[in-house]
Structures are given as C-alpha cells and as structure tokens.
C-alpha cells in the first residue's frame, strides 16, 4: 500500500532530473542560515510542491534554483550541468527558468503587452514584432487578450498574476518557479490563477510551486516536499504525504493549517 502510494512516475521512467538540489546550504549576508543541506529533484514534466511553515526557507530554496541567491555549499544541477561551478553563466541559466513572484512584480512603467514581450526582446534579442506576436498569443492563453495596452496598475491582482505567468512563459522556459503565486490575492481571484497553473501542468510544463493551497498541492502535484527550518522534513507523493505523513513535524504543520482554515484536502 505504502509502496504504491510512494511511486514517483517520472523518476521511474528513468529520466534525468531537470533540476537537482544536492545538499545545498545558504546563508544571508547578515549571517542568518536559511537552508541546511537541502536535497530534492525535479524531473521533466513534473509538478513539485514545496510546503512548510513561514520562514522555513521555501522562497530561498526557489530563488537558489534561479541563482538569484548564491548557494554556500552543495551542488545545484540544472539539465545535467553543475551550475554551482565557477564558470557557469548565471544569465544563461535564468533564461531557461521562468519565475512567478508572490507580489507579481510586473514592471509598472510598461504596458501589459510590453511586460510580456520585454524578456524575449532584451534577453533573447528577438525581433520586436515577433516578441509582441508571442506576447499577444500568451495574453490570450491566460485570458487577457483585451488588456495588452493598459498599465499593470489598472488590473486586478488575479489579472496581474496571470500577466506575470505569461511574462515568464514568453521566455519559453524549461521549468517554471512559482513562489506563493496566490498568497497576495483576494480569495475570489485565487481560482483564476490556479486554473492557469493547472492548465500549464496538464500541458506538461515542469513546475516548482511554493504554495499554501493544499487542494492544489493534493490534486496537481506529482511530488511534495515538506520543509522546516531550512531542512527537508520529508518528501513523497501527495497521496502519501497528506494521508500518511511519517514525520511528527509534517503532522504538526498540517494541524496548524487545519486550525487556520478548517480544511485539509482529503482524497
């Protein structure tokens, strides 16, 4: 029973992990240790959800994958290449990794369409016309084809986050990182963003998602990683983690969530 629950489809297929965190540690300049020997893998086409209490290091971990934070120890392997090696060009890695932020971080001085097109134009040196065509296509995909000409500040939070997803997709990344993409949203807007993410997952996009949306983790994730205090507590399929958490700290974390929201997604 436990065995079948713990099967990791993508890993079983024998594919190399797309992203591998191999015992990475991280500390902030002020000395605060945020990650300690953290390891987990993300395989192509997989949706990995990172769960854990506030301050457990989820954001730091996801920023390390994008090399926005420098790891102090351990290896970070991206598409088979150890990118913690000295001579690796961080910019080249970031071009292939998309990121969606908690507070959207759209560029307020650019139109929505330009926000989506700016990555290909500046980083990939694509012709403008081509970049704008792609941007229009992606805005349509997230259901905002009529909003291209307005400024981000004129959109609702949910709309802004969908634009942010389109902006990251415009780089045609190999993996998408989401850092609590729905935490800054009013409840009625959470659904529209999760729907876009679910569609992406169905299309086979590789995704790493930090979230407090347990229902999303339960239904969409292929693999769940639970963290606390910068360490991995346990990892497994969502069925196994939610139904048979092995670690006391995982149970405690779920218990707190239940107190707050009164819901835990059961089967």
């Amino acid at each position: 029973m436990t065995d079948s629950l713990d099967t990791r489809k993508m890993a079983m297929s024998g594919a190399e992990p797309l992203v591998l965190l191999d015992g990475i540690s991280h500390a902030y300049p002020n000395g605060k240790v945020s990650l300690t020997e953290l390891s987990f893998a993300v395989h192509p086409g997989e949706v990995v959800c990172l769960l854990g209490p506030s301050g457990s290091g989820k954001s730091t971990a996801i920023r390390c994958v994008n090399m926005l934070e420098p790891v102090t120890a351990g290896r970070l392997v991206f598409e088979g290449i150890d990118v913690t090696a000295k001579d690796v060009n961080q910019v080249e890695v970031r071009k292939r990794v998309g990121m969606v932020f908690q507070n959207f971080e759209l560029f307020p001085h650019m139109s929505v369409l330009k926000n989506v097109a700016i990555g290909p134009i500046v980083s990939l040196k694509r012709p403008k016309a081509e970049a704008y065509d792609l941007a229009r296509e992606l805005l349509a995909k997230v259901g905002l084809s009529d909003k291209g000409d307005v400024l981000p500040s004129q959109l609702s939070g949910g709309q802004q986050q969908r634009v942010a997803i389109a902006r990251a997709l415009a780089m045609q990344p190999d993996v998408m990182l989401f850092d609590e993409p729905t935490s800054a949203l009013d409840p009625e807007m959470v659904g529209e963003v999760l729907a876009v993410m679910r569609k992406l997952a169905e299309e086979g996009m590789t995704m790493v998602v930090v979230t407090h949306e347990m229902r999303f983790a339960r239904n969409v994730a292929d693999w769940v990683v639970v963290m606390e205090d910068g360490r991995l507590v346990e990892e497994g399929t969502p069925e196994r983690i939610f139904e048979q958490p092995r670690m006391e700290r995982t149970r405690a974390f779920f218990g707190k969530l239940e107190e707050q929201d009164g819901v835990l997604p059961t089967g």
Partner: peptide, 27 residues
C-alpha cells in the same frame, strides 16, 4: 524584487538597471 524579476527574465545586471530599475527610479 523588481530587480530579481528582471534577472529571472534572463537580463544581465546592467540590463535590469537600464530597462527596469532605472526608469522607475527616475520618477
């Protein structure tokens, strides 16, 4: 985070200053 967003789109530090941070700071 604005700089991080620019970097995550594959911009170099100089590009993220010129395209994203600089124009906002200007006002």
């Amino acid at each position: 985070q604005q700089r991080q967003a620019a970097l995550s789109l594959g911009m170099t530090p100089a590009q993220s200053f010129i395209v994203v941070v600089g124009p906002q700071a200007w006002w």
